[in-house]
Design a protein around this nucleic acid. Structure first.
Lengths: 141, 141
DNA sequence: GTACGAGTTCGAGCGCACTCTCAGTCAAGC
DNA sequence: GCTTGACTGAGAGTGCGCTCGAACTCGTAC
């Protein structure tokens, strides 16, 4: 598989694939007769996994660590597991955080909805939020 | 409240507060006798809310939109609500995505754990991952 | 009156993760 | 033999969100 096809199938751009190889995230690819990269389909699994790490916010420097350990074989299993476990905790925290923010958004949206209903019923239009006037209007951030 | 105290209480740096004012995320602060910023405590709510938007990955350009609408008063309630609703969908998608990644991480970690247990029992140490040898070892990405 | 600490503006610099441009190379099809 | 289009490496550029430094100004304590 040439870089173009890999790009299509992995969702990365060819530029990004070369960049990843350059920094060591992807192993140095075998070259064909010319000096073009020729990939084995198995690279797709690795790219997909990198995608998961990326999606969960792992910085490239940690992915590089993982990639380097992966190259070194099973001796580094424990290191890799430890890294992933730490990262997993981060992801869990992230999810908890997002969920908390979600409830804030929900209540904010509800406030706007309520304000809109009141406005529709009683106040057809107005242009400015008078600083102290109309104390009954929702405090809107 | 001076910028230093606001920095302490909001968790932003004074540099960042000035930067936020410069780009329009924070309203232009009243100045005291000298020309120093003097804040009302209410700004803390707004900063906290901005923090939620940031934590959920809203880009600054969208926060700017929201901030501008906020300045314009209740006429923009609908716009703000619409923006928040769209953002909320994004956050939900994010959470779903992270949760999916979490299960991938879980299974990866489980694989490593299993491999380690097998290694501890039967194979005290080894240095390299032989390409085709030892087919029973877990395929580790 | 002077030293201090906290504040001011302005603009440059940074870290991250790409993204793109350039000038050239190569294989395949006509 | 020539065109086409995908590829090459090197390196510059981009967008984001800060972060920092320099040089200066205040108000307050001593």
């Amino acid at each position: 598989m040439k870089i173009g096809e890999l790009a299509r199938r992995s969702g990365l751009s060819a530029h990004t694939i070369r960049y990843y190889e350059r920094i060591g995230l992807l192993p140095y690819a075998d070259r064909d007769g010319g000096r073009r990269r020729d990939y084995d389909a198995s690279i797709l699994d690795w790219i997909a996994f990198l995608g998961k790490l990326k999606a969960t916010g792992m910085p490239i420097r940690d992915m590089l660590l993982y990639a380097a350990w992966r190259q070194q074989g099973p001796v580094t299993n424990k290191d890799r597991r430890t890294l992933l476990e730490a990262h997993r905790e981060g992801v869990r925290a992230q999810i908890a955080d997002l969920s908390a923010c979600l409830t804030v958004l929900d209540s904010k949206i509800a406030t706007y909805r309520a304000a809109e209903e009141r406005t529709e019923d009683h106040e057809p239009d107005d242009r400015h939020e008078p600083a102290a006037a109309r104390p009954r209007s929702a405090r809107s951030h």
